[in-house]
């Protein structure tokens, strides 16, 4: 690693310097959010908050699908888009085939729409991935990026947010 380019070292060092300006903005944003919460709090408790937060998982949870016990049975290169849900209790995975899904559409939706703030404890949500059929795997709980794209694997991750409304609606529409 000694011979890496000065440009890459400088990029890595500079990244932290840019981020160091953010605490000021975070403090201002936090004050604004606190004020907003104080005004909006009564209205928030009128909604079914938990349902909305877990809406993606709840929308797919009871859909019929095939169960596999091992990652090797998933078929990452079979050309078919599928949802993969981890079975926390029994081990293994549930596969929901999305025969009419387009991998390019999914990527487009994920690229153009950010995940929503995660309000539920991330550990209460099973891990969910999308196999795009060409070897690539992504998760609807992560921002789409090359760094968050797996190759023939169900990578470990910490959810960055709830799937966007647009992605939820697209997938729910395919499953209905």
């Amino acid at each position: 690693m000694s011979g890496i380019s000065d440009e890459f070292i400088n990029e890595a060092l500079s990244y932290s310097k840019k981020k160091s300006l953010k605490p000021f903005f975070f403090a201002s944003a936090a004050a604004a959010v606190a004020l907003l919460f104080a005004i909006a709090a009564p209205w928030m408790f009128l909604k079914d908050h938990k349902t909305e937060t877990m809406s993606f998982y709840l929308s797919i949870k009871n859909t019929e699908g095939m169960t596999v016990s091992d990652v090797s049975e998933i078929g990452f290169f079979d050309g078919g888009v599928k949802l993969i849900i981890s079975d926390e209790e029994n081990g293994g995975y549930k596969l929901l085939s999305l025969p009419h899904a387009s991998s390019s559409t999914i990527i487009e939706i994920m690229s153009e729409n950010h995940v929503k703030p995660l309000e539920e404890n991330p550990d209460s949500i099973p891990r969910i991935w999308i196999s795009l059929g060409d070897g690539r795997t992504v998760s609807p709980y992560l921002e789409y990026s090359a760094g968050n794209t797996g190759a023939c694997e169900l990578f470990g991750y910490e959810p960055e947010g709830e799937p966007s409304t647009e992605l939820t609606e697209y997938i729910s529409g395919l499953l209905s």
Partner: peptide, 10 residues
């Protein structure tokens, strides 16, 4: 050096 930080860190 163009990037002094990288130069010194090396």
């Amino acid at each position: 050096p163009t990037y002094l930080g990288a130069f010194l860190s090396r």
